[in-house]
Simulated assay, not measured.
Amino acid sequence: MNTHTPSSALTLRDPWALVPPVGNLDAYISAVNRLPMLTAEEEADLARKLRSQADVEAAGRLVLSHLRLVVSISRQYLGYGLPQSDLIQEGNVGLMKAVKRFDPDQGVRLVSYAMHWIKAEIHEYILKNWRMVKVATTKAQRKLFFNLRSMKQGLKGHAADHDTFRNTLTPDEVEVVARELNVKPEDVVEMETRLSGGDVALEPQTDDGEESYAPIAYLADDTHEPTRVIESRRRDALASHGVIQALESLDARSRRIVEERWLKVNDDNSGGMTLHELAAEYGVSAERIRQIEVAALKKMRKALETA
């Protein structure tokens, strides 16, 4: 007896109602594997409806019929230690992008076209979440990242499957990988080093009340380092006595303009006079007040540098 749901059952307004949340992974995988596949004619007809009429129901049927493909592809990336449910969700995003762009008149099936988009989304997710520090940012590094593990397994054998990144390649194996992937041997060594090192938490990860010696305990505290202390005192001196001496190097008008524009704070936390107010007081243009202000600040800066 054929227990598959007939294709007409997918003509629901909410096609996703047929699939349980991906959080329940076993139920989700079981459900998507029971969804029927589309024939080439059905697939082409639905894709044309989507392109010409923006038919959301057609898009839903195309996506649903290929969810099992995402599950299958996600299994290839379980070795990176990320939850399969997250890999599936990201792959589903890629599948939906593929469905949106799919052209049935190009002579290829959606299953072939969608693989690139599904893998691209999963790759991006892995690179962003596998480590706090990115390990692959260039095209060559990405190529190494996603091929080095499988190639090491082939070179080291099945005994290395559970700890691939910990089994260091020999110089001859590095040459083999570099030649196969068309990259430099030193690039292979660098990527292997990146992959073999794990993230280290600075703060202690236990809460048992016992004294913990996490890496943060060994970081230097330079607060009382002599050079830092001298710099701090110098900065404090310039911020007080230095500014006063710099102001004294100005003529009376320039000093008042600087004080009004930069140093004065009223009781209501508002600043001093504006350019236009000072211009009216001195009988010049606002632009002239601005020029005097710029020249005064430049002179003060030189005075502070020699203080």
Results as ranks from 00 to 15, higher is better:
126 I>A: 02
106 Q>I: 10
162 H>S: 15
68 R>Y: 13
50 L>G: 05
296 A>N: 07
223 T>A: 08
162 H>W: 14
307 A>G: 12
33 N>D: 13
46 L>Q: 12
105 D>R: 06
243 V>H: 02
256 R>H: 04
114 A>E: 10
234 R>P: 04
163 D>M: 14
49 K>C: 09
86 D>A: 10
269 N>M: 12
103 D>T: 00
87 L>P: 05
248 E>S: 07
279 A>P: 11
262 W>I: 09
157 G>T: 05
121 E>K: 10
263 L>A: 01
305 E>H: 04
157 G>Y: 07
2 N>P: 10
82 L>M: 14
139 K>I: 07
90 E>G: 10
295 A>Y: 11
40 A>M: 13
238 L>I: 01
49 K>Y: 08
20 P>G: 08
118 I>N: 00
86 D>L: 08
107 G>W: 00
10 L>P: 00
47 A>R: 04
269 N>I: 12
231 E>W: 04
200 V>H: 08
230 I>H: 04
208 D>V: 07
229 V>C: 02
267 D>R: 06
118 I>H: 01
42 E>T: 09
262 W>Y: 14
30 S>V: 11
68 R>A: 13
40 A>L: 15
28 Y>N: 03
48 R>E: 14
112 S>R: 11
113 Y>R: 08
172 D>E: 14
182 N>I: 08
168 T>G: 13
155 L>S: 11
139 K>Y: 06
12 L>S: 06
266 N>W: 10
192 E>G: 08
95 L>R: 00
32 V>D: 08
149 R>D: 06
216 I>R: 10
84 Q>C: 03
